[in-house]
Design a binder for these strands. Structure first.
Lengths: 236, 236
DNA sequence: GCAAGAATGATAGTTTTACTATCAGTTAAG
DNA sequence: CTTAACTGATAGTAAAACTATCATTCTTGC
């Protein structure tokens, strides 16, 4: 039996719900492809409109502007990921194992082994993941964060962090930095993935050949090390 | 006796060396102020030109575009910071103490106690620091990272990471993730500072009232905890 | 002190992006 | 089958992101 992940988005994220029409769905699906291909700054609504054989003005009926589209896409990804975390950790008793699952989800690793479809709702999850790596921080690194935050645009990200923080506390009751630990885990996973790909000298991971310890996913090993060394450390 | 930090910049970072003329210096100094005030995306060369009573075209003689100005500013900051790290750690024998100094420098804390002038070369270091927190990742999170990297635009950042990685290895010989540890330390310091200020629920630090453990700089405490727990952990 | 060269100012222009308005035609829902 | 909602098509504005040109000023070497 197949369940579709119903990702219901906050109404502030769009002008008209893109999931409510064929055109809206194309804007989102093709928006993901285009942004993954040419990057956020190079993308324009005009180019996207051409790609899906519609007009700029039609896209503006769904999203106020390009930045809001980005915010929508990353919010969607965070909601999807939170759902996966929920699903993957729900019936586990070992909280260490829960954290292990989270690490893999963050890197989009072993999804098939975890029975995660990478085509939820027809969304191209790997493409979205690469957008999140390259562009997600531009969603909040703006001069208008505060207003955007007031409109709850970052709620999915906060919810994901909260959920991870909860599991951290389950693993290590009383840990005083659960939320910062969760947010820095997520951010580090993404920055390091970006560096590994584009500025490898900032990392110890060679995307090509073999690596320091000769394991097949050194970034995962690194994140695991960082996370558990901080959680397993002595008193506070 | 006063030493001026001579920050000699890579020629690829500009069209004409802004330090070679009064106008160039004003572009950089006032560029820092303006970008810190209104943010990278809101800033335009026209606004900057008006502010310093010159013309858009004159600024274009120094910098190819706004993005290059940003890259220049953050490169300057990394070079300044690397110099500070060098200077602050040079005559220390205890490598733990070196790392402690680095943590404080990253957060721009206790500079007066460390005898660091915040007006090196008339540059407004705190303003630059806030630009680095909000905007620095936009310098490399682009579709043209690879070309920019080929032109050595990120060398100052890499050099800083290398230096910190070196000190990490001094503290913990054989640590297999020195470079990733260094880059993630820097990044974590900055986005946690950003979150603390703008999205505090992603952190455990309340910029206003008291905090989890009641210390006066919980972010510093958190970074110290993260860094040393990973370095002091068992075998690899 | 003056001539040549470099830097700047002033003006004006182009192209692209970002966005808005309007209205006719098409589709879908009651 | 009618009315409201949606889309397409056209057109437009404002601002951003540049580029070009030339006169003027400011140096600097001779």
């Amino acid at each position: 039996m197949e369940y579709t992940v119903v990702v219901r988005m906050n109404g502030k994220l769009f002008l008209r719900d893109p999931e409510s029409s064929e055109l809206g769905r194309r804007i989102v699906r093709q928006g993901i492809q285009l942004m993954a291909e040419i990057g956020f700054e190079e993308m324009t609504f005009r180019k996207l409109a051409e790609r899906i054989n519609t007009k700029e003005a039609s896209i503006y009926r769904y999203f106020e502007n390009k930045h809001r589209l980005l915010v929508y896409l990353v919010a969607w990804y965070w909601q999807w990921l939170e759902y996966q975390v929920l699903f993957q950790t729900n019936n586990l008793t070992d909280s260490r194992e829960k954290l292990e699952r989270i690490l893999k989800l963050l890197l989009l690793k072993d999804l098939s082994a975890l029975n995660v479809s990478t085509e939820a709702d027809d969304m191209d999850i790997p493409a979205l993941h690469s957008i999140v790596i390259q562009e997600a921080s531009k969603a909040y690194l703006t001069h208008h964060v505060t207003e955007d935050n007031r409109e709850q645009l970052f709620k999915p990200y906060k919810d994901l962090c909260s959920r991870i923080a909860g599991i951290i506390l389950e693993y290590r009751p009383g840990y005083p930095y659960a939320r910062s630990r969760a947010s820095s885990l997520i951010e580090t996973a993404h920055y390091q993935a970006f560096f590994m790909q584009h500025l490898p000298s900032l990392t110890d991971f060679d995307p090509e050949s073999q690596n320091p310890v000769g394991d097949k996913d050194p970034l995962l090993t690194f994140l695991r090390h960082l996370l558990f060394s901080s959680l397993d450390t002595a008193r506070f």
